[in-house]
Nucleic acid binder design. Structure first.
Length: 283
DNA sequence: CGACAATGAAAAA
DNA sequence: TTTTCCTTGTCGC
């Protein structure tokens, strides 16, 4: 389930299970074996997320005897990007024999975690990590994020707001679900060019994303319907599909809008499926 | 901008 | 068995 909230939640979960402990590191699949051998027996110190990128900071062998002695510039960083269908699975020790698709397994005395199918799983330096941060836009889930930086790019672009919200250089962490849902919640036509978005609209979009994505981290799923539009409040059947969360438009093509009853539409936009309600999104 | 490739697994047909 | 997917780099026009 890879959107920004998933990655931030994973950072929390990796840290909760392994930070400050010595970790067995393996790559049953083999594609990460050399790096795994280097990290094996070292300590996981921190897990960091920016947009959809996850960073695991390990102490070099023999360094950082105490967790609070961590110096990121000396760390070995593992850079993980799940791509479209990468998955992470946690479990309690003892770890079962790994499937041969597991790219990276961490294990300690109490827990294990398996990573499979990532687009990226690579050992990087502190400088390489910084370069990744530098090319990503502000992330609504990071406390240091500056929404004005994102708006500066939005307002000088002729590209549609729907495409800009998916551009990780503009804003990091928003994926196909959050972009569709946040535009619906503010009644904004997805095809409007970025330069036509007003400061007030951007402010509303940004702060809504902060709230929605924080909720997403907490619940580990995407829910975007307001209290008055939940299944219970409306007496409608809950959503039944693999994602679980309650949404207004995402993957609801040809179904009735929860607010106006009109038909939700879908279209291809930059090779991704866009969903919106033409009646409700006229701003 | 579109097409395509690259990772796995689960749902749909 | 085929399709689909909450992604993103690259390559070609």
């Amino acid at each position: 389930m890879p959107e920004g909230h998933t990655i931030h939640r994973l950072a929390q979960d990796y840290a909760a299970a392994f930070a400050g402990t010595t970790v067995r590191v393996t790559s049953p699949q083999g594609k990460f074996s050399d790096a795994a051998a280097l990290l094996d027996g070292t300590a996981l110190h921190t897990a960091d997320a920016h947009g959809k990128h996850l960073f695991l900071g390990f102490g070099a062998p023999g360094r950082f005897p105490a967790p609070d002695a961590f110096d990121p510039s000396f760390a070995h960083w593992v850079h993980i990007h799940l791509g479209l269908f990468g998955k992470v699975a946690f479990g309690d020790a003892p770890a079962p024999p790994p499937a041969d698709t597991v790219r990276l397994r961490l294990a300690n005395g109490t827990a294990y975690v398996d990573l499979r199918g990532p687009t990226t799983c690579a050992l990087i330096t502190h400088d390489e990590k910084r370069a990744i941060h530098d090319r990503l836009g502000p992330d609504p889930l990071r406390p240091d994020a500056d929404p004005a930086l994102a708006f500066a790019r939005v307002r000088r672009s002729r590209t549609t707001i729907a495409a800009l919200l998916m551009d990780q250089k503009v804003i990091a962490g928003v994926g196909n679900v959050y972009r569709a849902e946040v535009l619906f919640r503010h009644g904004i036509d997805p095809y409007r060019p970025g330069r036509d978005i007003t400061p007030a609209e951007w402010d509303a979009i940004w702060h809504d994303l902060v709230a929605l994505m924080r909720e997403g981290v907490r619940n580990n799923r995407i829910d975007t319907v307001r209290p008055e539009h939940t299944p219970e409040a409306m007496g409608r059947p809950p959503r039944v599909d693999d994602h679980g969360g309650e949404v207004y438009v995402y993957r609801r093509a040809a179904r009735p809008c929860h607010i106006c009853g009109g038909e939700i539409r879908t279209a291809e936009l930059a090779a991704r499926n866009l969903f919106w309600c033409p009646a409700c999104q006229r701003n």
